[in-house]
């Protein structure tokens, strides 16, 4: 330590004013022009390089609207007054997604032709809720959120009911508008 300190006074004089002849903006004349040109070139180059860097850094996968209509099979397969667990493949997937390109939802057939499609993700923090047909409740294993069969909040920490996917029937198929991991904030 003491050695180091003994050396500092000698270097400090240089460090305090490393360039006695320098002026603001890198000097005048040719030197000033070179400095200005260098600054400009670096700024423009850096800005250009930043385009792909920032694009990928912010979001390599997000399309303008990640949701697509996904078929869950014949609408007539769903029996009234029943809630079933249905798997589907996410519309946006890369070759390296593995099992994570799948997702699932709960389809509740209120009456023939009338459905509710719930995300499996708890509205509290996204854990997978499980449907219990006997008590007609959805329960979350993480922090104990509970929902009624119509998706409304029954108890626990969730701030709202279950997330619902939009649905429609096309050619007798039940389709849901899905692709984005459901969250408290609506789509992008």
């Amino acid at each position: 330590m003491s050695d180091h300190e003994a050396q500092t006074p000698a270097t400090e004089g240089d460090a305090a004013n490393p360039c006695e002849n320098c002026e603001a903006n890198g000097g005048k004349g040719r030197r000033g022009f070179l400095f200005a040109a260098g600054t400009t070139l670096l700024t423009v180059g850096g800005g250009l390089a930043a385009v792909p860097i920032v694009t990928v850094a912010i979001d390599p996968g997000e399309a303008p609207n990640p949701n697509r209509w996904i078929s869950l099979g014949k609408a007539s397969n769903f029996k009234p007054d029943q809630t079933v667990f249905v798997k589907f493949i996410m519309p946006w997937s890369s070759p390296t997604d593995g099992e994570t390109n799948q997702n699932a939802c709960y389809v509740r057939c209120v009456e023939p032709g009338k459905f509710q499609v719930f995300a499996i993700n708890c509205a509290h923090l996204g854990c997978p809720v499980e449907w219990f047909a006997q008590s007609r409740l959805f329960m979350c294993p993480c922090h104990g959120g509970v929902y009624y069969e119509d998706g409304s909040r029954a108890s626990g920490p969730p701030p709202r009911g279950l997330f619902e996917y939009e649905w429609r029937i096309t050619d007798g198929n039940l389709e849901v508008f899905a692709g984005r991991l459901p969250g408290l904030q609506e789509g992008p």
């Binding site: 079933v84 667990f85 499980e130 449907w131 219990f132 047909a133 006997q134």
Partner: peptide, 10 residues
């Protein structure tokens, strides 16, 4: 007696 197979969850 609950349903243990078929289209039950799990």
């Amino acid at each position: 007696m609950p349903q243990m197979g078929g289209d039950a969850v799990d």
